[in-house]
Design a binder for these strands. Structure first.
Lengths: 343, 343
DNA sequence: GCTCTGGATTGAAGCGCTTCAATATTCGTG
DNA sequence: CACGAATATTGAAGCGCTTCAATCCAGAGC
């Protein structure tokens, strides 16, 4: 790790400089900054003027070192290009701001190794706390096995036992999505998505199964995909379009909006109408899929709310190290019915 | 700003603890960390073992304070939801990593006030340096008028005179885009976009004008929009579709991909074919528009490269406070020809 | 055997700030 | 007008680390 010289040579104004300029003691300046109510109005005024005149910017590093506290929390995100994660960041930031904390982001850009790198970095930086939103994998993430200096709250992944976490109930989401299709009149459902090593996808499928089991005369077919991209959806769409009309499902549950997007596009090209011939519902309320010609019904995950909850948990953990008990907040996805299911 | 108690009660291991455990002096432990070549192999080994056994994580705050250096740089982005900015972040991060620096992100979420807030924050945190990518406005951004402790490099905005900056040449981009349409056989061009208070949009239009002026028998019409969203494009598309075929432009230059996206969609719905009847080119190479049914030709801005350049400039400024001269790097957008212009 | 040399190790002096016990100042009372 | 109680201000002791001058030690050379 290379070292960098102190910033730009312009040596910055220190608190001692302000004290000298204002003709008061060092401690007084500190009081002006941290406990202004303990300083006489006259002194307050004078010190503040000196601060302005000298352009003093308190060094929060030194501050944090001396006080043993910090107002910075960090959010490690596996992929900021995914609007779901960005929503979390948004929510986390709002909540942090309301609580007087500052939130910085770290983008892993789908590289899981970076999670560890950033976690170590923020640990060493002695952040007040760290949020982390990894890919939802079934495997135990390695970072969860370590002890960290900072408190850590996980999003989008079940970390119960080792710390706080906030997730959405994918099984329920799958259930609700399937139910929506069934209520829309579909009887031959198809669930498509993959890989099933992604826990949320497996959960969504389970939920769909449950909904189908509860309904009468409804069947559920499964068509796995390798990934969750529009290209995977297009393949599925082509395959479906190639079938005889009566061998086609009348309701498709795509594991992600991107897949749904691809399906609808392929189906459209092949002359199969959505939602008339086939109804399609996606998952994620992904902005990337918002602009589809046929607006896609979807299960929205409350990303922002997840972020807010995570910060709330984190702050509790930081503030009450004694009484804090790890919590697993499980939020409910919401159905957003749009045109692709015939609304 | 609220204060938070020191992390979780578990008091962290200090360097002194390691020194005691290994039976060496404080300075020796520090040497192990920073100048291992100056320590005898035997001591090195012993100290390292102690570090491991105690789980010592050096406090980089204290380190930064003592050494007067830091390896953290921050990137303040006006909107991480925009893939162009995210690309910059990506590039910046890669470049930073290669230079042994760590990059954290701050998302302003289209709120210009937050730019100042974050700038102040990072200034106080004594980051090694700060990158900032604001909206490209014609107005002088207020943050540029201030003196900062940290070195600051601006992206996407011309800050010459006050610091380093890296931008793309929008005039040239508009020129190249128009040229592409002309080469594709278009003679009646339309430029659409807005508001013109956005400097880049005005520049792109100027570029288009230049290309048209240089060509023979080519006309250029202007249709302003209020914003740069798909909805604005759809309006334009509808308006064009309503015209008699021979009163319609045969080449449309949209100021953004999102507008282009809307235009193509509206045109398609109304039975006007792209690219057969009208060719359309966008701008930005926006991922949100990638999945259009008709892949959109576009001018790609080298976001990643911008990020890399910015970090490069920043590092130079940090390292050579004496000899450093502010620089304005102007990059060239690249034409990406896709189906919407008939390729 | 003794000095010289250079690498290894040490310990103290900060880095810029907070905090707290100690001191100084002010004010209300008797 | 003096005195104790508030109220203001001070200065020193850290926070956890880096750095550098000073010290130590081992082996080389005579």
């Amino acid at each position: 790790m290379e070292e960098l010289a102190e910033s730009n040579g312009r040596r910055s104004v220190r608190m001692a400089d302000v004290a000298a300029h204002a003709g008061v003691a060092l401690g007084t300046v500190s009081h002006v900054l941290n406990h202004p109510e303990k300083v006489s109005p006259h002194t307050l005024e004078r010190v503040r003027r000196s601060i302005d005149e000298l352009g003093f910017v308190p060094n929060s590093r030194a501050r944090a070192l001396a006080a043993g506290t910090s107002s910075m929390i960090a959010f490690i995100v596996i992929d900021l290009g995914n609007s779901f994660f960005l929503d979390m960041a948004r929510g986390a930031e709002l909540e942090a701001q309301e609580r007087g904390l500052n939130l910085v982001l770290a983008n892993c850009d789908m590289n899981t190794d970076k999670e560890l790198v950033y976690l170590s970095l923020f640990d060493a930086e002695r952040m007040a706390g760290v949020l982390i939103a990894p890919l939802p994998s079934s495997a135990d993430d390695q970072w969860r096995l370590q002890e960290w200096q900072s408190d850590v709250v996980a999003l989008n992944v079940d970390a119960s036992g080792r710390g706080c976490c906030v997730t959405t109930d994918d099984e329920l989401g799958g259930y609700l999505a399937a139910q929506h299709l069934i209520e829309a009149g579909c009887r031959r459902l198809l669930f498509t998505g993959g890989p099933f090593s992604l826990l949320p996808i497996a959960d969504r499928y389970r939920g769909a199964q449950r909904a189908v089991a509860e309904a009468d005369g409804v069947s559920l077919e499964l068509l796995r995909t390798l990934q969750t991209k529009p290209a995977d959806g297009r393949k599925v769409g082509d395959a479906l379009a190639a079938r005889a009309a009566d061998a086609r499902p009348d309701g498709v549950l795509a594991a992600t909006d991107l897949i749904a997007f691809g399906i609808i596009e392929a189906l459209g090209v092949q002359g199969v109408s959505v939602p008339d011939d086939v109804k399609v519902i996606g998952y994620d309320n992904n902005r990337q899929a918002w602009e589809s010609t046929v607006p896609i019904s979807t299960m929205a995950q409350p990303g922002e709310e997840m972020g807010r909850h995570a910060v709330r948990l984190l702050v509790d953990e930081i503030r009450n190290p004694g009484s804090h008990e790890h919590e697993h907040v499980r939020l409910t996805p919401t159905l957003i019915a749009r045109e692709s299911t015939g609304t």
